[in-house]
Each structure stands twice: as C-alpha cells, then as structure tokens.
Write a protein that binds this DNA or RNA. Sequence first.
DNA 1: AACCAGTCCAACCGCAAAGAC
DNA 2: CGTCTTTGCGGTTGGACTGGT
Length: 265
Amino acid sequence: MGRSPCCEKAHTNKGAWTKEEDDRLISYIRAHGEGCWRSLPKAAGLLRCGKSCRLRWINYLRPDLKRGNFTHDEDELIIKLHSLLGNKWSLIAGRLPGRTDNEIKNYWNTHIRRKLLNRGIDPSTHRPLNVSADSAHPNQDAATISFSKQQDSDDGKASVFADLHRDAKMGVAVERCPDLNLELTISPPHQNQEAEDRVQPILKSGGGGRSLCFACSLGLQNSKECSCGIVGNISGGTSGSSSAGGYDFLGLKSAVLDYRSLEMK
DNA sequence: AACCAGTCCAACCGCAAAGAC
DNA sequence: CGTCTTTGCGGTTGGACTGGT
C-alpha cells in the first residue's frame, strides 16, 4: 500500500517523558488539537512514536484530568461498574470524568482488588471467594450452558448478557431488575446535569413498566431468545422511562448507571 | 546508613477493531 | 473484497518511592 509503518522504532525516545517533551506536546495539541497521532511527533518536533504521545496526553497531560486520591464514592462506583463490565477500563473511565482507564486499571489492581479480597469477594467474579462457580449453580442445566457459551463467543455485550443470564438462572440480579436494558452506548452528557455533576450515572429501566422477557430486558430485542414478542418495540423507550421506584440493581439505586451511555465495542 | 521487600504508577507491548486504500 | 495502516484498549513491566529492619 505504500504507507510507512506506524512507528519508526529507531530514532525514538523511550521511557520517562521530560518536561520539555511534555511542553512540546501540550503546546502542539493546544494549537492543533488531538488526533493524527502518527504525524504528531514529527510535526511537534518530538522523538517519540505517536502511540507514546497519545498515551502521555491521555493519561497525564490532558487538562481535564483529576489528579489525587479516589474518593469512597468513586471506589464503590468502580466496583459496581467492574461487576457489570469486567475489565473494560475505558468504559469504566468513561463514567468517571477526569479519570483515565490506565489510572483506574492501576487503582483496581493495587487497591480495590485487595479491598475486595479482604471482604472475601473474588475481584474477578464479584462473588464470595468460598463459593465455587459450579457449586453456586447446582441447577444450571446443559441448555443454559450452551446458551451462555453461544453468547460468550459474541461481543462484550453478549458476554455481559451471558453473565446476567447465568445470574438470572440463579435468581440473582435479574430477579431484582426485570426491566434492565443493557443497550450500551456512549452518549453526550445528558439532561440530568445535577446528577452528571455529581458523577452519578443513571440506570434506566428498559420497558417503562412493561413486563419483558429476559432477552428484551438486556436490550437484545432481536435475539431469538426473545419470548415476550415485543420485538423492536422498546429500544427507543428508555429515555424518560426511568422507573419511578428504581431498581436497586447491584446497589446502584442512588448511584445508578445509565446503560445508554455505555457502549460495548 | 544500608539493605530489602512491598507498593505504586507511568510507560511499553501486543492485539484487535475500524477505517483507508 | 482483501490488504494494510491507524488508533485504541487491556495486560504487563520496570523503575521510583516508601516503610520496616
């Protein structure tokens, strides 16, 4: 194709950034904006690869970064988001303004993992450490397993879907949240400004009070698993349909999650 | 003061998705 | 439509820092 490789590995600096390099990068991005990372280093006069510049900017130099310790609320929000999304650090970071995926990932690995272990919770499954997966699901039948595997092989959304489907079989989360819609999309800052300002994501229920099958509850209305027969009829009905009562899904009643504003890639 | 172990975090690496050609 | 580049993400690493002995 004639394009040059993305990184000219020779003749590039590695390791810690100097103050001068930071200044160059900041002033270039201030003048020209973000993007075009490949050509940026040359244009900015930096002996770095574009990847390195992007990382430095996103994780350290961005002006909107919130430095300093995580608050207790942020801790709990990260735990809850992680229980839903797994190691989707960028998605989690998207719900914590001023925090980066790298920062949250580091914080998770150094603090929260230990915190959960001390609580007797498995950080990867968010279930009690002394309960094995098998013994926890004694009634899980073969059909369920094959269904979960099928979904697991799909994208992240389906993976969450499969996890929650397992939970549904156990009567866990879904029992408490029958109308949960896991349609995960990134949205611009939305109407609830006060809530946004407090970094409080909003969990919307999906069916506006209608009784949905599990597949529709998860925003998979077109799934063959749909058994309620309202295909295609609810996907647009999430805004403003936040249940007045609000499900306390994973304890998110007060710091609830807006699934419309999360996107599984 | 010197050493060591544990912790923290910035940065790197490899991979995959998205987009360009 | 297939190939290649670019970008973004998650996992991992290594050096700096800190506290204990």
